[in-house]
Simulated scan of single mutants.
Amino acid sequence: MDTTDIFLYAGYLLIIIGAVFAILMPLIKSFDNPKSLLKTVIGVVVIGALFGIAYSTASGDIAAKYAADPFNITPEGAKMVGGVLITVYALAILAIFGIVVTEITKIVK
């Protein structure tokens, strides 16, 4: 094991520690104000519902070359990827719509 491997593992460890702190610290802070935690839970539920709708509309069709080696994509995996993509597209469109509405309201004021 040379120094490159050591630094890679150290980087992985720091990313994991950062992710844990990024998730836990806002949760700990939100116990002071439970209403903010409720807003977070509502947001997570809405995104989960959006993913559920996207997953149910996604297709599980796979081209023959992706079903074989070396890819071995299953219909369930293809449907999951399709659901995630549709969710990302919907959230991106929603974000762009929000930006446009915000800018229009700034112009009107």
Rank of each mutant, 00 (worst) to 15 (best):
D2L: 01
D2C: 09
T3F: 08
T4P: 02
T4S: 05
T4I: 07
D5T: 15
I6R: 13
I6D: 04
I6K: 13
F7C: 13
F7Q: 15
L8N: 13
L8V: 15
Y9W: 06
A10Y: 03
Y12H: 13
I15T: 08
G18T: 13
A19H: 03
V20C: 11
F21M: 11
P26S: 07
L27W: 14
I28A: 15
S30D: 04
D32M: 10
D32S: 15
D32T: 14
N33E: 05
P34C: 05
P34H: 02
P34R: 03
L38A: 12
I42E: 05
G43H: 02
V46M: 06
V46W: 00
I47S: 13
G48Q: 04
G48V: 01
L50C: 11
L50Y: 06
L50Q: 01
L50G: 08
L50N: 10
G52T: 07
I53Y: 10
A58H: 10
S59H: 07
G60N: 05
G60K: 08
D61W: 11
D61A: 15
A63T: 10
A64P: 12
A67I: 09
A68G: 09
A68D: 11
A68Q: 12
P70K: 01
F71W: 01
I73A: 08
I73N: 08
P75H: 08
G77W: 04
G77Q: 09
G77P: 09
A78F: 09
M80P: 00
V81K: 14
G82E: 01
G83R: 02
I86Q: 02
I86H: 09
I86K: 10
I86Y: 06
I86S: 11
Y89E: 07
Y89R: 12
L91S: 13
L91R: 11
I93R: 07
I93G: 06
A95W: 05
I99Q: 04
V100G: 12
T102A: 11
T102W: 09
T102Y: 15
E103H: 13
E103I: 14
I107A: 15
I107S: 13
I107R: 15
V108P: 01
V108I: 13
V108Y: 05
K109L: 00
